[in-house]
Write a protein that binds this DNA or RNA. Sequence first.
DNA 1: CCTATATCGATATTATAATATCGATATAGG
DNA 2: CCTATATCGATATTATAATATCGATATAGG
Lengths: 212, 212
Amino acid sequence: MEDTKPISVQTLKRLPIYLNYLKSLKKDEVVYISATSIAHALGLNDVQVRKDLAAVSDKGKPKLGYVFAELIMDIESYLGYDNIHTSVLVGAGNLGRAFLCYHGFSTYNLEIVAAFDKDENVIGSNINKKQVLSLNKLKNLCERMKIKIGIITVPESEAQTVCDLLVESGVLAIWNFAPINLNVPEEVIVQNENIGSSLAILSQHLSEKLYK
Amino acid sequence: MEDTKPISVQTLKRLPIYLNYLKSLKKDEVVYISATSIAHALGLNDVQVRKDLAAVSDKGKPKLGYVFAELIMDIESYLGYDNIHTSVLVGAGNLGRAFLCYHGFSTYNLEIVAAFDKDENVIGSNINKKQVLSLNKLKNLCERMKIKIGIITVPESEAQTVCDLLVESGVLAIWNFAPINLNVPEEVIVQNENIGSSLAILSQHLSEKLYK
DNA sequence: CCTATATCGATATTATAATATCGATATAGG
DNA sequence: CCTATATCGATATTATAATATCGATATAGG
């Protein structure tokens, strides 16, 4: 299933959702699972699900669907859950703390190796058994451990500086929670998590419901 | 600017990003701002930005662009930042705590009125001056205060139960951070925040960079 | 063994979003 | 005052994603 055809971003976003749903089923009771039933459970179109699954597996059988355990493995393998992704987190404030304490990352085999901050008061402390280090140790650690993922949970005003530092340290993928557009070299990807965008959708819906 | 033509979800998501960028500029120095310059700053296509802005304002002038202060007001007004949105948060764990302590919500005029949890140890405590209440007080408070937005930061296993309770309490918009598909009546909107989807994009990019 | 049917995979169609093009216009600069 | 130009808004085109359709096939059930 190596990418003969490039996979769409939308499909990529849905794969973890399918995986999560599959894992929520009792594995003893299910042998075969069809795209149709997944679609029904998640409120999606069945052709959409089938097409998405075709990106990771070609083992679907007419009338039956996919072998449950096999499908899980194929999705996990496609998403790279086979190998651990190590990352660093910069900004040990409230949000950063929440991430350091969040157990759910293990599902995705994402490991936060260490946290960094510039506040002398938190440097040297541990949060959920993870060390908070001074920012000036970032580059050395990333290079030594070949860290490729950086999580930015600092305030907007510091985000670009932190971003530059991460890029300089060899990080290739940045997960950005600061509400700002980061400038990065072409080879680095930035995934922005924007609270405002989500709220806009919610609030638009609300005003439709309430004032119309 | 009332919605004569329906606005696309993608446009809606970008509006807060434009707004945030505009607010980051020094207002004394800018009188006019063009779609072209916004597009350039954010790495977007200028026609896209212009079309997005056309949804909230028709005051653009050829050669000049938009009056800076006016544009900000028009976006804010469109996004409903004029009136405060009150909400409740359910699940005072790590992520819930981070939200309760997050100051950024005020930008969007989102106010978390109170938090709810079922853990006796946190009920009655305060987090960032916000009370943590027992779940059985949820319905009464939501009805009394006409709360329409609910934020779910409980574990996956409890999310549907909490969701049902929120819906029963009159909530119309649910911001869901549990990695699960929530079943809701048609009139309720759910905005899912899925960590796995974002990670999938990052990790896909990484493997392209590293192994090809 | 035969038939009905659920589902697959492939292809065709439709819907949605992004981008390109172009005439109109407001002003800056000579 | 005149001309060049940046930008607007509208429309046309292209790209991307979602959905519909259809033949093939595996099995369940008679």
